[in-house]
Structure formats: structure tokens, C-alpha cells
Design a protein around this nucleic acid. Structure first.
Lengths: 128, 128
DNA sequence: CTGCATCCGATGCGATACTG
DNA sequence: CAGTATCGCATCGGATGCAG
């Protein structure tokens, strides 16, 4: 990315840096944030997570958890019982993600109506 | 989504609410955040944006700007000159999004190394 | 300069069936 | 219970060409 002149974004960060991009991808994907928030509540077993998140497929829950685990945000603990029991929990690193996510969620809910109005207005203009 | 028992996430927000989900989608998509940050710097013309964002296709820049405009985050101003000139700028609403996004970006950059190490370790375990 | 339309490969993700 | 494997549709997004 070419910067705009002074070589630095006045916002004080580079939204184009690969690390930022990757985190944004994580936060943006369909299920990761939801899983992180739920695990922020308490350690949870696989099937309980599946029941808690209405609409998620087993495939996507597995993939989401693997991704979060790979990034060191989630810890997977296997108890060799019969039947097997697997607990997922946030790591300390994962816990630090809770606050930034919350800031976004608060923004979303605080501006929900305003965005909706803008959207309606935009769509009306399009129809005319 | 079924909540975990008390009917409310202790984090103090519902990451599953549709409004939150939509905002997360916006923030998560490939180019929106980058465009918002750039426009946070200054109003910018279409082709200047295109040059500033290395790798974006014209198609996606158009789509991204339309989406942001529809949500009331970006304002599009046409100057009926010849050749035509179109300026994009953040709306006041768009400007309020800058701070939450920055919080995330700061997190990303602050934990970049830690995530990378976790990822490397995870991948090594997989190979063995 | 600022777009829109079309084509088409890449990826996302749900459904389903099978395993230890 | 906690996954893995495979399929198939839907959407994403780049490349290209045309237009006001």
C-alpha cells in the first residue's frame, strides 16, 4: 500500500499490515467471534458449544475451533474417558481478545438504528 | 442462540445479535476497513483510492464503496466536471467507527508475534 | 475518470455419511 | 461424544471489455 503522503497513517496504525489483515479475517468470519465470546464465559464441551450456537454445522464448529486453537486463542483439553470428553477454553491470549471484540460489538449495537436508516434511505433512492 | 444459563452473556453484549453480526461482516471483509482508514485520513477520489490500495480490483473497490455508502459510513460526492470527479469521504457515523477499528488493529499488532509462535508450534505438532 | 456487465475459477459452508 | 471425509451449491472476487 502506498501511503498518502507523509508515509504514515495519522490514525497511528497500518490497517494493511498482514498481521492486521489476518486478525480482521478471524474477527470477520462467521463463527469465530461467537465462539470466543462463549468460551469467554466458561470452558465448554464440543457438543454443548454446538447446541449453544444455533445454526452452526459440525463441520464449521470443528474448523473454527481448529483455527482458534492454531492461533493460540483457544486451548483444547481431552479427557480420556469413555465416551471421550473434550473441553475448549480461552487461553490467556484469547482472553485479551475479548475487550477489542467487545468494543466493536458495543459500536455495532449503539449504531444499529442509524445504519439501518441509512440503508433504507439508500435502497429507496435506488428504486426511484 | 441459546444462552448459557443466566440468559445473558457476562461480557455484557450479545455477539449473536444480527446487528453485531452484520458489523462484524463489514469489518471482516477484505477491503472495507482499509478503505475506512484511508478515508479517515482525507477525502479521496476513486482512482486515487485504487492506487493507494495495492491489489484491489476496480470491481471490488466499487462494491466496497457502495456497501459503505449504503450503510451511511461513506459519503459520495460527484463534481459534474469533465472528466467527472468523484470524492469519497467518511460521514460522521463512519468516523465513529475509526476508534473501534483502531482498538482491533492495535491488538493485532501487539499480539502478532505471539499468534505467529502459536501457529508455528501448532503446525509442528501436526507434522510429527 | 468513474463506473457497470460478464465470465469464470477459487473459496466458503451446509448436508450427509462414516469412524474410534 | 467428538470428530473426519466427501459432495455440491452459493458466494467471493479477479480479469476483461464496454460506456457515459
Amino acid at each position: 500500500m502506498k501511503l498518502l503522503g507523509n508515509g504514515k497513517l495519522t490514525a497511528g496504525f497500518d490497517a494493511d499490515c498482514p498481521a492486521t489483515r489476518e486478525i480482521l479475517n478471524r474477527v470477520g468470519d462467521k463463527w469465530s467471534v461467537l465462539v470466543v465470546v462463549l468460551l469467554g464465559e466458561q470452558a465448554t464441551r464440543f457438543n454443548q458449544l454446538k447446541r449453544s450456537i444455533e445454526g452452526i454445522s459440525q463441520r464449521m464448529l470443528t474448523a473454527t475451533l481448529r483455527g482458534l486453537e492454531r492461533d493460540g486463542l483457544v486451548k483444547r483439553t481431552v479427557y480420556p474417558t469413555n465416551p471421550p470428553q473434550v473441553d475448549y477454553d480461552l487461553t490467556p491470549l484469547g482472553r485479551t481478545l475479548l475487550e477489542p471484540v467487545k468494543v466493536l460489538a458495543v459500536w455495532a449495537q449503539g449504531h444499529r438504528a442509524q445504519v439501518q436508516r441509512a440503508r433504507d434511505a439508500f435502497d429507496r433512492r435506488g428504486k426511484s
